[in-house]
């Protein structure tokens, strides 16, 4: 299972990671090795096997629609890298 350079670039873009040429190269090789190892799963016949998301059968864990205290604005913003007039500030989107 060989990952292409372009695929690694595409994945990095999806994951919002800026990678250097060197990183792309090393990830291409390393991920290919790991993905190749995973090909072992192809030995298995999984046609009639249902996927398992939760190890233990649980269902309907719900909460009552009762208002609980929010945090004060100061605490919500306390870790904000850039904050302006009660908001989180982000650089221009486009």
């Amino acid at each position: 299972m060989d990952l292409s350079y372009a695929e690694v670039r595409y994945i990095a873009k999806l994951a919002r990671l800026e990678l250097s040429e060197k990183e792309v190269e090393s990830y291409t090789a390393q991920l290919s090795t790991v993905l190749e190892y995973m090909q072992q799963l192809d030995e298995l016949n999984l046609k009639d096997v249902e996927p398992l998301t939760h190890v233990f059968q649980m269902q309907n864990v719900f909460r009552e629609d009762k208002v609980a205290m929010s945090l004060p604005q100061k605490q919500i913003l306390q870790n904000g890298p850039e904050v302006q007039s009660g908001h989180f500030k982000v650089p221009q989107i486009l």
Binding site: I11, R16, L17, E18, V90
Partner: peptide, 25 residues
């Protein structure tokens, strides 16, 4: 300079190599 650059630079400088490798995978 813009949002996407901020995202990419932040995540690339904030995460170490193993974390990035697993995010990629």
């Amino acid at each position: 300079d813009n949002l996407n650059q901020m995202y990419e630079k932040t995540r690339s400088s904030g995460f170490g190599a193993e974390v990035k490798r697993r995010i990629m995978l």
